[in-house]
């Protein structure tokens, strides 16, 4: 897919910097997983908050409401979900390594799409750890979560602010005539 080249491009572009600058403190073992979440474009369908949702691209499942275990998440990322749009991210999936007991031929029309980038086992584990620690079981997205993901260089998080957090934006709001 097109994603492949874009992700490759990403590595040499400032785009990846936001992932790094906004990483959780070094003490957080899941910071590497957040970088994978951005790099592998999980957010393209599941969104930054993991809630996924329908829309033009069908329905990416909510990772906040998922009941998958760490091992099941690792398998899903590695092998994709047959018959859905969830891609596989493991090099050699359905070739050298059977997935869900199937190779390419056996998967046939159920073969999931190939991810835009391949992830090493340690990256797949890292992103699973990140989902478990920061997304699975979380309620509605919050401002703190959003800022932790994006840093505060974008207005993307503003809608999650509570009223008390908003005064500094009053001038911006007022500038827009209705």
């Amino acid at each position: 897919m097109l994603l492949a080249s874009v992700v490759a491009l990403n590595l040499s572009m400032p785009g990846v910097a936001y992932g790094q600058s906004s990483q959780a403190p070094a003490s957080d073992p899941t910071s590497a997983g957040k970088a994978v979440f951005a790099k592998a474009n999980c957010m393209g369908c599941h969104k930054w908050h993991g809630n996924g949702g329908g829309g033009y691209g069908g329905d990416a499942l909510s990772l906040r409401k998922t009941e998958l275990t760490r091992e099941q998440i690792i398998e899903t990322v590695s092998c994709g979900r047959p018959g859905t749009g969830m891609p596989f991210f493991m090099r050699g999936a359905y070739d050298e390594t059977k997935c869900h007991g199937m190779n390419r031929r056996e998967a046939s029309a159920q073969m999931p799409p190939e991810g835009g980038t391949f992830l090493r086992t340690k990256d797949v584990e890292a992103v699973a750890d990140y989902v478990i620690a920061h997304i699975k079981g979380a309620g509605e997205p919050t401002y703190a979560e959003c800022v932790a993901f994006f840093s505060n260089t974008s207005r993307v998080c503003d809608i999650y602010k509570t009223q008390a957090q908003k005064p500094e934006d009053a001038a911006v709001g007022a500038a827009r005539s209705q």
């Binding site: 874009v6 491009l9 990403n10 785009g15 474009n41 969104k47």
Partner: peptide, 10 residues
């Protein structure tokens, strides 16, 4: 202008 952003890869 082909940079990614939001849900878009390019």
């Amino acid at each position: 202008g082909i940079e990614p952003g939001g849900i878009w890869s390019h």
